[in-house]
Simulated scan of single mutants.
Amino acid sequence: MNHATFKQSLSADTPPNDASVYLQALWYDSKGDWDKSHELIQDLPDADAAWIHAYLHRKEGDIWNADYWYRRASRKRLSVSLDEEWEQITAALLAR
C-alpha cells in the first residue's frame, strides 16, 4: 500500500484489510474516532505506537502526557500542525 492508496481509503467505511494496527489507528483518527485510535495503540510497547500515542495526546491537548509518549518514542514534539504530523507518521510507516 502506498500513501495515495491509504489516503483514498479514508473515503471508505472501514480501514484497508492490509493496514497494520498502526495505520488503522491513524485511519480511525483521521475519520474522527480518537477513542478507537487510542484503544488500538495504547497498549503496544514499541516506539511507533508511542509516536502515535504522543500525537493523539497532543491532538487531545494533553501536552504533558504527549511529551511523555514522545520521550518513549525517542522523539521531540515538533511545532508542526497536527495534520502535518499525521502525514509524517503515515509516510514513515508506509515507507517500511
Results as ranks from 00 to 15, higher is better:
residue 2 N to F: 05
residue 2 N to L: 12
residue 7 K to D: 04
residue 7 K to A: 12
residue 9 S to E: 01
residue 11 S to P: 00
residue 12 A to W: 12
residue 12 A to F: 08
residue 14 T to M: 04
residue 14 T to D: 13
residue 15 P to Q: 13
residue 15 P to L: 03
residue 18 D to C: 04
residue 19 A to S: 15
residue 20 S to I: 13
residue 20 S to F: 02
residue 21 V to F: 05
residue 23 L to V: 09
residue 24 Q to R: 13
residue 26 L to C: 03
residue 26 L to V: 14
residue 27 W to I: 10
residue 27 W to C: 11
residue 27 W to Q: 05
residue 30 S to D: 08
residue 32 G to S: 02
residue 34 W to M: 14
residue 36 K to R: 12
residue 37 S to N: 08
residue 39 E to N: 04
residue 40 L to C: 04
residue 41 I to D: 00
residue 43 D to E: 13
residue 43 D to C: 02
residue 43 D to K: 12
residue 46 D to T: 06
residue 46 D to N: 14
residue 48 D to N: 08
residue 49 A to T: 07
residue 50 A to N: 09
residue 51 W to G: 04
residue 55 Y to D: 04
residue 56 L to Q: 06
residue 58 R to W: 07
residue 58 R to V: 14
residue 58 R to K: 10
residue 59 K to P: 00
residue 59 K to W: 00
residue 60 E to M: 05
residue 60 E to C: 02
residue 61 G to Q: 07
residue 62 D to Y: 08
residue 63 I to L: 14
residue 65 N to V: 10
residue 66 A to K: 08
residue 68 Y to I: 15
residue 69 W to L: 02
residue 69 W to P: 00
residue 71 R to C: 02
residue 78 L to S: 14
residue 84 E to C: 01
residue 86 W to A: 13
residue 87 E to V: 05
residue 90 T to K: 11
residue 92 A to F: 03
residue 93 L to A: 05
residue 94 L to C: 13
residue 95 A to D: 15
